[in-house]
Each structure stands twice: as structure tokens, then as C-alpha cells.
């Protein structure tokens, strides 16, 4: 079964958020099919994080609607909706007064799972995000940034959600750690068949992870398409310029590398 045959999991229609006169997200419509990973790409202030937060109602839309697996999210109590959706925060947001294990277990505890089931789930999740099981008794402050975000991902996955929302989750990490976490995440989402919306401003990250990319600018979704669509058929000048950035950077790197080779050869 190809992605195109699968049912729509997340559907946003005419989604709008205003603060006073400022329109932060402007009539955004987007469909994400089950198992698909859509990256929302854009600069700061483009409305991508606001869009993400309207999906699980951390921010209430001014207009428009979001449905999840065919159910209008406005019909669910917000806390119940959020327990069904994994959310990974840009600033990680681990609770400093809880251990790693308690942080991971927080949503299952809210859902009232039995303690044995929670304990088993925590072990399973720590293994999934490639953390030492001994970490479960530590406190978040004792972990490196990369380890903390692995815990953040484990916490988001704890209640076995089918949908994941990630808000620039690896933005604050060094490039090597970031790449390692990206690869881990790709493996996890394939294994769990997660429907994912992933927000980033990093072109390379978008190209690495996305099934489809939605480019946002000034609150509007300019174009949605596969990475190759966007590279070959940009819908407007902004998208083209954005898509050119990795090439320009690659050219700079090639030039530097070439100069270095020439020096070494001399």
C-alpha cells in the first residue's frame, strides 16, 4: 500500500489564528495521511509552531477546524486530545522534580494505567530511544542535551499515540548529536507507523526527514510537496530561494574542500 492510498489522519481546514489585528496563521489547509511525515518549514514568525499547537489545541484556533482520524478535535476535552497525541517541545520541558522514569511515565499515569504496565512501558521506551535503563532514576538536570531530548521523545511516545507533533525538537543540539537523533527518530517512526508533523527552520533537516514538506511564510502555507517536487517545481520565488540554500551551502563547502585538496596536492 502506498502512502497515497492510506486514510487521512490529520486534516486542517481554513485554520486561522489572530492576535488582535495580527494574523499569525492565515486560512491554512493541510492533510496528513496515516504514517506520513510532513515537515512544516519556515523562518521564525512564519506561523509553523502556532499551526502545530493548534493541532493539539495548546493554542485554540480563531477560525477553521482540525480533525483527527475523522473526529473534530473541538469536540474532545483538550486534555484527552493531548493524551492521544505525542508532543515533543522545542525547549524539551522535562519536569525537573521528577526522575527520567517519572517523566516518561507521566501520560500513562494520567491515563490510569496499572503500575506494572507503566514500568514495562518505561523500560521499552528507554530502549527504543537508546538510553541506558539506569537513567530512569536520574533527574533530567543530570543528563546531556541529547539525552534529555531522547527522554522528551520517549515521554511523547509513552501512551502509544498514533500521531506525533514535534516542534524544532533537535534545534538546540550540536550537529553530530542532532543527526544521530534524527536517524533514531526516523527508525522509531517507521517501526511504530507514526503520523508525524515536524516543525523546523533547518532546510537540511527537512530534506532528510520529510515525506512531504509544507513551506510556510507570513502565516500562509505557500506550497506542499515532496522534497523533489519543491526542488524541481517551486511554486514561487520564496520557495525557490529557500530550496537553493542547501545548494549554495554545498557549493561553499565544495569550494573550501577543493582549495584544501589543491593545497595538499601542492
Amino acid at each position: 500500500m502506498t502512502a497515497a492510498d492510506r486514510p487521512v489522519m490529520i486534516e486542517a481546514e481554513g485554520l486561522t489564528r489572530r492576535y488582535g489585528d495580527a494574523v499569525v496563521v492565515d486560512h491554512l489547509s493541510l492533510r496528513v495521511r496515516a504514517g506520513e511525515l510532513v515537515v512544516l518549514l519556515g523562518g521564525s514568525g512564519s506561523g509553523k509552531t502556532t499551526t502545530l499547537k493548534m493541532i493539539n489545541r495548546l493554542i485554540e484556533p480563531t477560525a477553521g477546524l482540525v480533525s483527527l482520524d475523522g473526529v473534530d478535535t473541538a469536540d474532545l476535552p483538550p486534555h484527552e486530545l493531548r493524551r492521544r497525541i505525542g508532543y515533543v517541545f522545542q525547549r524539551i520541558g522535562l519536569f525537573p522534580h521528577m526522575t527520567v522514569g517519572e517523566n516518561v511515565a507521566v501520560t500513562p499515569v494520567l491515563l490510569g494505567w496499572a503500575p506494572e504496565r507503566i514500568a514495562a512501558r518505561v523500560d521499552e521506551l528507554l530502549a527504543l530511544v537508546e538510553l541506558d535503563p539506569e537513567m530512569r532514576e536520574r533527574h533530567p538536570q543530570e543528563l546531556s542535551g541529547g539525552q534529555q531530548q531522547r527522554v522528551g521523545v520517549a515521554r511523547a511516545l509513552a501512551s502509544e499515540p498514533r500521531v506525533m507533533l514535534l516542534d524544532e525538537p533537535f534545534g538546540a543540539l550540536d550537529p553530530v548529536t542532532r543527526e544521530r537523533l534524527q536517524q533514531s527518530f526516523l527508525r522509531i517512526r517507521a517501526a511504530l507507523d507514526l503520523t508525524t508533523v515536524f516543525v523546523t527552520h533547518d532546510m537540511t533537516e527537512a530534506l532528510t526527514l520529510a515525506d512531504r514538506i509544507g513551506v510556510m511564510h507570513d502565516g500562509r502555507l505557500l506550497q506542499v510537496g515532496t522534497p523533489s517536487d519543491l526542488l524541481t517545481r517551486p511554486a514561487d520565488r520564496y520557495v525557490r530561494r529557500l530550496m537553493d540554500t542547501p545548494r549554495r551551502q554545498a557549493a561553499v563547502i565544495d569550494a573550501l574542500a577543493g582549495a584544501a585538496t589543491a593545497e595538499a596536492g601542492a
Binding site: L58, H79, R83, R84, Y87, F89, G93, F95, P96, T107
Partner: peptide, 25 residues
């Protein structure tokens, strides 16, 4: 505020947010 938002994000009700996150902190 990142922690209170995280508390909402993991599915806490306002009361749970108070008792499990804000008051302990």
C-alpha cells in the same frame, strides 16, 4: 512557562497541572 506548557502538552488538566507540576516546583 515551558514547563506549564509541557504539562498541558502531556495531557494534564488544569488541576493536575497545579498539583503535579506548579505546586511541587
Amino acid at each position: 512557562p515551558a514547563l506549564t506548557e509541557a504539562a498541558r502538552g502531556v495531557g494534564m488538566t488544569p488541576r493536575q497541572q497545579l498539583l503535579m507540576v506548579e505546586l511541587p516546583l
